[in-house]
Structure formats: C-alpha cells, structure tokens
Design a protein around this nucleic acid. Structure first.
Lengths: 112, 112
DNA sequence: GCCATCACTCTACATTGTAGAATATAATCA
DNA sequence: TGATTATATTCTACAATGTAGAGTGATGGC
C-alpha cells in the first residue's frame, strides 16, 4: 500500500478539469470550467462533479485557488500549480508512448 | 441518473489496458498486457488491476476474450471490439480538442 | 509426490466520477 | 422590504474505476 501519488497518471476527468482551467485562464472558476468542458467535449457535466474534482486536485496541490470578488460577485479562481503542470505533462507523454504506432484509421475501418 | 455509458470517455487505466491489448495484438492476454503497460509507462502494475479492468471492459463489450491453449498452457486472449475501437477514438478526439492550443512547454517553463 | 511456473480468479478497499439538493450572496423590482 | 431571480459554491450520497495481494488451478521437471 504505497500510494506513490507521483507516477500515477491523472484520471480522465481530472485531466479535463485541469485543461479547462488552463483554457479559461484568468477567468477559471467553477462555472466557467464546467461550461468550457461542456462546450469542448459536447457532453453535460454536473456542477458537483467539477467542484469535487477541483477540491481533490487542490488537496493534491495540483491546482490552487483564491477568493476574488468581481462586480460584487465572489468567486473562487483556480490556477494550475507547477506540480499540476508536471502531472499534465507526464500524463500526456505516458499516453503518447502507448498510442505510438497505433493506426486509429485501421482500427475503426477494420470492424466498423 | 441516466448513465449514458456512451459519450462517457474511457478511464485512464481502461485506455491503457485497451491500448496494450492492441499493441500486443494476437498475443494479448493478462500477463502480456500487464508487461506491456509496465514497459511502456515505466510504472508497476498489479495483476489484479489488469484483470479487473479487462473484466469490466468485457462486460461493457469494449473488448472480447476467448480461451486458447498454446503449448499446453491455457490463456484468455483478448481483442478490441468495434465498439471498443470507437470508444478509443472518441476518448482521444475529445481529449485532443481540450489540449488544442495549450502550450505544454510554456506551462512547464513558467512555474518549473 | 513435491516444487516451481504461469495464468488467472477473488476479495477487499481506496480513489475518482457523478448527480442533485442545499446554501449563500447580491441584484432586481413590485 | 421581502419575494424572486441569477450566480456561485458547498454538501451529501453513491456508482464506477483503480489497485493490492492472497488464493486457485494446471503443467512440467525432478
């Protein structure tokens, strides 16, 4: 039971959330992150899913948050930490090595 | 509680397992799939993790298996189904859209 | 028969993914 | 002013996925 949190790639949704934070840049808070994922992936996301994941990512220090009030509306703005950036990079390169050499077209063509 | 199993992208490990099945091609069974993931990603994988995931993928009909005896040794050979291929493709394109426009280099450089 | 190998199954539990109701705060307006 | 609407977040509960390690069964050599 070692749980080397390092080396373990990000979960699918964790990665989506982190990427959405990056994409919404300085305006990354719960609602915009959710909308961004919905827009880009085309599937519906529950609010709770976003915040729960954001909380867990923050606990692992892969994202950071700070309160910010704009136009009288209080928001929790998120950003990616250095460790978060590394986790994203590792997750991606690990996956790229696995996809290496796989012919997606043939995969779909073969069995339809 | 609709659970549209479609549209939901594959989990990180599910994807790794499916890719390893493709990579080991006609020799894809528990042990080789495990070894393949370990070799390519560089991290240790428990046998149980592989089989549990393979079983769940089979239940969702994303992979199929059949018994085969070679040199007196019985093995459960796995292959990717058509639906499995589509799931892989969808998972990948969904992710690619999210990564679109993100500068990994800058991401790592900025905060190190 | 006993031991070592190889492949797989089972059990149990931790982490991640998800839904939806509840709460909080400010803006609007009859 | 207090009901109403809109926005943002928190909370609760549970399902699905990820993981470890012990257990089982078959085979082959000694």
């Amino acid at each position: 039971m070692k749980l080397a949190r390092d080396e373990v790639p990000l979960g699918t949704f964790e990665e989506q959330v982190m990427l959405a934070v990056l994409r919404t840049a300085s305006d990354a808070y719960g609602m915009t992150v959710r909308r961004e994922i919905e827009d880009v992936t085309g599937r519906e996301i529950a609010v709770g899913a976003v915040y729960a994941t954001l909380d867990r990512l923050e606990a692992k220090e892969l994202v950071a948050s700070k309160r910010s009030t704009i136009d009288g509306v209080s928001r929790r703005l998120f950003s990616i930490t250095a460790a978060g950036g590394r986790a994203l990079a590792e997750t991606r390169s690990m996956r790229e090595r696995l996809w290496q050499g796989i012919d997606l077209r043939r995969l779909l063509g073969a069995a339809g």
